[in-house]
């Protein structure tokens, strides 16, 4: 299984845009989405984000994967919201979710982590005089994105092991090995980073 949001090489406009600008645009979009309440405008934004996928020439397989993940989540949220608050509010919440998840996924699909780390480091350089260490924060951003892929891989493998023992419905059979393997991964990653001299500055 390909973890969601893994970088997909390409040469489209979105791939070539500067990582820092894309990151700021993503943050701005996230803020904007929570200020706007009109379902119409949210719908327009959602459409714009969706159009970004063909622009970035994301493979149909990847798009389908995203749809398969989003539809059940959005469906569930929509149903719950409709029942609890009402149709209009449910539509607004779901459109917001759609826009943020869709845009964030588009961002990671078209941005190399290395470029993002460099952009964060460069952007935060002025904060150095306040004691911030930009290269640490850049690494943090990179490792956070990488953690998503690492955790989904561990979860996938744990679920396979669960199935092999016909224990699909047992929560401990998933949670215990998942936690242990995650902690061990953290230990190993820490050692590997230390061996590469990351903590030596």
């Amino acid at each position: 299984m390909t973890p969601l949001g893994l970088y997909q090489p390409g040469t489209s406009v979105l791939h070539r845009a500067a990582a820092g600008h894309k990151f700021l645009a993503l943050l701005a979009l996230a803020v904007l989405i929570f200020v706007v309440h009109s379902p119409v405008w949210l719908g327009v934004t959602a459409l714009a984000v969706t159009l970004g996928y063909p622009v970035a020439r994301v493979s149909p397989r990847r798009c389908l994967q995203l749809v398969r993940l989003l539809v059940p989540v959005l469906g569930l949220v929509f149903a719950a919201q409709w029942w609890l608050v009402g149709f209009d509010s449910a539509a607004v919440v779901c459109l917001r979710l759609l826009v943020t998840l869709g845009a964030a996924n588009l961002f990671t699909l078209t941005t190399r982590v290395d470029d993002l780390v460099t952009a964060v480091e460069r952007g935060l350089r002025p904060t150095r005089r306040f004691g911030v260490r930009p290269e640490r924060l850049g690494l943090l951003v990179g490792l956070t994105l990488q953690a998503v892929a690492a955790l989904s891989m561990i979860a996938g493998q744990t679920r396979e092991a669960q199935r092999a023992r016909s224990a699909e419905r047992s929560l401990p059979a998933f949670a215990v090995p998942f936690l242990i393997r995650t902690l061990r991964h953290a230990d190993e990653l820490g050692e590997a980073l230390a061996a590469r001299g990351v903590d030596d500055d």
Partner: peptide, 17 residues
């Protein structure tokens, strides 16, 4: 230093990075 499990020592998403 090269470890046993490459999955833990590869910290960036692509080989070049």
């Amino acid at each position: 230093f090269v470890f046993t499990n490459p999955d833990s020592q590869i910290v960036m998403p692509t080989a070049g990075e």
